[in-house]
């Protein structure tokens, strides 16, 4: 592999940043999807939905940014990944097709709420599981059976690293949802959020350690990154999230859980770098950061993304500030 240019490294980091923001923002609304059917009272469910409604669009969008940036910068990796994972992608498409709609119709279709909240649960779960499994396989290597053939069998997913990554994501998003509800709701939903945060944190903390050890033990034919330092940061931030939970204001708890989740991604990036798509059939067929688009596309997309996404971050923060109040039960959303 030729030495990567700094632009190629920057492009790799940029996609990682977009996917990190996706996990940190969409993480809590996916988590609320996982919680919703298990909450008893209608008015509590209403508060949970109202708390995420104004912002979910802006959250989900970061998956599109990450995906489109991968398409532009590493088209071969993008197309190979999506075509070899075809059956999984179809499942993901179904979830993406129905999730926004279940959300909208839960509100309007009062008689069928039972169905809509379970659909919301299932679509949220599917997105979480597919994301977790994909990251897990990115770390363990995608089980290709030929240079461009992938074994679609479940066995590929049912190995320790993908499974642990799935569980890690589920616990992370539940923890994050709990923290978000603490910031955006009054009792009893606030208390519920606090309980969910505390319990999910235990699972998350245990999983971070086990997952990191398991991921490190995979024989990485590539492994040029320095994951140790990032792994330690992730563990420290995870512990801090719990230790400071009682001391920071209610609104800050969600920052702590967001930071803990964000700290997973440098670990994933460092374990992967310089590989973009790991091919377990033939490590020589790994797609690395040097297998991307020509330099002009890199310059265009990275400069544009750096400038414009900073502005986007600005107005996203503004909108989150507009919706920082505690959601009141029984207040019509619109």
């Amino acid at each position: 592999m030729p030495d990567p240019s700094w632009l190629q490294v920057y492009g790799f980091v940029l996609i990682g940043v977009a996917l990190t923001v996706f996990a940190v923002l969409d993480g809590f609304d996916l988590g609320i999807g996982l919680l919703l059917p298990f909450v008893g009272r209608q008015e509590d469910k209403q508060v949970m939905i109202d708390a995420i409604w104004p912002v979910w669009d802006g959250n989900e969008l970061w998956a599109l940014i990450g995906g489109a940036a991968l398409f532009a910068l590493f088209p071969t990796a993008f197309a190979t990944l999506l075509s070899v994972l075809y059956p999984v992608i179809v499942l993901l498409m179904l979830a993406l097709l129905f999730r926004p709609v279940t959300f909208e119709l839960w509100y309007h279709d009062a008689r069928a709420r039972f169905w809509w909240e379970w659909s919301f649960f299932l679509t949220s779960l599917t997105i979480t599981v597919v994301a977790g499994a994909a990251y897990g396989m990115a770390l363990a290597g995608f089980p290709f059976t030929a240079p461009d053939r992938f074994s679609a069998s479940l066995k590929a997913v049912l190995t320790p690293v993908p499974l642990l990554t799935v569980l890690l994501f589920i616990s992370a998003f539940l923890m994050h949802a709990g923290a978000y509800l603490v910031a955006r709701a009054d009792d009893p939903v606030r208390a519920l959020g606090l309980r969910v945060f505390a319990r999910a944190w235990v699972a998350f903390a245990a999983l971070v350690v086990i997952w990191f050890v398991a991921a490190m033990s995979v024989k990485h034919a590539w492994g040029r990154g320095q994951p140790w330092a990032f792994g330690i940061v992730a563990v420290v931030l995870t512990i801090l999230a719990r230790a400071l939970a009682g001391r920071v204001g209610e609104r800050r708890l969600v920052y702590l859980s967001g930071l803990a989740i964000a700290s997973l991604f440098p670990v994933i990036g460092a374990l992967q770098y310089p590989v973009v798509l790991a091919n377990s059939y033939d490590p020589a067929a790994n797609l690395t950061v040097t297998d991307g688009s020509p330099a002009y596309t890199f310059r265009l997309v990275t400069v544009l993304a750096s400038v414009v996404l900073t502005i986007v971050a600005g107005y996203t923060i503004f909108v989150y500030r507009v919706f920082r109040h505690k959601v009141k039960a029984g207040e019509p959303a619109y």
Binding site: L70, P75, T76, F78, A79, L82, S293, T297, L304
Partner: peptide, 18 residues
């Protein structure tokens, strides 16, 4: 997608970002 990614993918990224 593989062949035209540097062009077509760029356009999708520009749409998503801006």
């Amino acid at each position: 997608s593989k062949a035209t990614g540097p062009i077509f993918g760029t356009t999708l990224a520009v749409e998503g970002i801006t």
